[in-house]
């Protein structure tokens, strides 16, 4: 996993780089926009961690240029500028996610992995959570190495939830992904699928839990150890 870290404060850059390398990333570091552009010209990182307040300009400009150039590299913006309106501004300009300093390196790593879990992302082929593994190519699900027999619908629901690991997935997002346009799911169809999925995952000993966020949708998380 190649990561480009754009951060101007030397000790923070060094410490973040070390922590991300410990998490399994290969990290290139750029202390400013100019160096970042040089690196981007010759290498294609899988994910970019971008600080906004840089000595030679605004990180959002780089982001804008990147998106104008049609580059879809996932970008996680890290900033100390947490204005009430900065979040929208950053996301509007093409940031995939946003995190406010001080952020623990583990949190940065987790957010990067979440970005890479998207379809087409580096981690998008094999989705992992606890002892649960999902191979998106063969569409097979295993728990602790043992196959979990799931119907197609449940497999589709699980994929949506795993790709958005750690995030609440609204019902309509799951329905849009799982049901074809000409299929009209009944009002309780999704509940029924989730309920079957929960039972089958529990039976297979998967250490995951699907939480209902009443009024919004569902969220998958590692099972809480009692």
């Amino acid at each position: 996993m190649k990561l480009l870290l754009i951060e101007d404060v030397p000790p923070l850059a060094q410490l973040t780089q070390e922590a991300l390398e410990a998490e399994g990333f290969t990290v290139d570091h750029a202390p400013g926009l100019e160096q970042a552009r040089e690196i981007l010209a010759v290498a294609a990182p899988d994910v970019i961690v971008l600080d906004l307040g840089l000595p030679d300009g605004d990180g959002l400009d780089l982001l804008h240029g990147l998106r104008q150039g049609g580059k879809g590299i996932p970008v996680l913006v890290v900033t100390a500028r947490a204005g009430l309106n900065d979040r929208i501004d950053g996301l509007d300009r093409g940031a995939d996610d946003y995190i406010v300093k001080p952020a623990a390196p583990a949190e940065i790593a987790a957010r990067c992995r979440a970005l890479l879990r998207r379809p087409g992302g580096l981690l998008g082929r094999r989705l992992q959570l606890g002892n649960l593994a999902f191979d998106t190519a063969s569409r097979s699900v295993t728990a602790g190495g043992q196959p979990v027999p799931l119907a197609r619908r449940e497999v589709d629901v699980l994929e949506v939830l795993l790709r958005k690991l750690g995030q609440t997935v609204p019902r309509r997002v799951i329905e849009d992904a799982v049901y074809a346009l000409d299929e009209a799911p009944g009002p309780n169809a999704l509940e029924a699928s989730i309920s079957r999925l929960r039972r089958q995952l529990a039976d297979a000993g998967a250490e995951v839990e699907i939480h209902t966020i009443r009024g919004i949708g569902y969220l998958i998380a590692p099972a809480r150890t009692p």
Partner: peptide
């Protein structure tokens, strides 16, 4: 002030995390 306070805090957090 946000930038000035958060950056050293971020450094401190990262150091301690290590």
């Amino acid at each position: 002030a946000a930038h000035a306070l958060r950056t050293p805090l971020a450094v401190l957090s990262a150091r301690i995390a290590k």
